[in-house]
Design a protein around this nucleic acid. Sequence first.
DNA 1: AATTCCTCCTGATAGC
DNA 2: TGCTATCAGGAGGAAT
Length: 264
Amino acid sequence: MPELPEVETYRRIFERNALDRVITRIEVRDARILSGITPRTLSRTFVAKRFTRARRHGKHFFAESDGGKSLHLHFGMTGDLDTTPASSPEPRFAKVIFTFGEERLAFLDARLFGFCSIAPSLESFVATNGLGIDALDPRLDAPHFARIVGERRGALKAVLMSQEVVAGLGNLYVDELLFATGVHPAAKANELSAKKLREMHGAMVEILQRVIAIHDRGADYPPEYLISNREENGRCPRCGGKLARETLFGRTTFYCRKHQRPKC
DNA sequence: AATTCCTCCTGATAGC
DNA sequence: TGCTATCAGGAGGAAT
């Protein structure tokens, strides 16, 4: 499920394959993927234009065009990008297809939890929708993180999942982060020590950047990551104990009862 | 402010 | 082999 590292990977794919090329055609295969626009609007806005810059905020992707408007994609849970020549068979689950002469970029989404839309700009969308600072924004340093997370009274899992506090983390990497820092998912954010919160910031940046690099190389997750052991009867990569698997705050949550404590 | 529940949607998987 | 039931989950909205 695309969280910040995956969307960053899509951004890079888009950058390499779809920038500075004249958009010759846009085809919508399933209009339910569109949010607030029609296929006609999409074509009128972008055909004969070029995408000039690919950006990301949290899990949201924006491609600026030389027409002024930005393409806005959200990948939901099964969103994906495919770049194959326009002459090759259309990929499975293609919902919107951008053609640049002989080249093609397809926005795929098997389950339609993602969407394709048009935004005036990344900044306007972020402001209008109350998204928090991006998890990898250089302005988000440890004290800043400790302040905005530590003032929340909710459970850490819920607070970290909330895109209004910090944008970009989802179910998998929140679990990974809590595992890495030894914090129980239900621990209250405002009850963590400032020290632990600062440590959590460091771990968050480390995990996100490392996963982006892993995706870039096409590598596997490290075996010591929780995510590599995220399965029924999975074992804690630190102590070998059986991992807990519970639904917490509406999400399947894996954690180690031994290492992850409510009070830190 | 926080939390819980519900809905959207359908491929993959498990069970029979 | 083939059918069916269940699960997964980001985000937004309603209700509490």
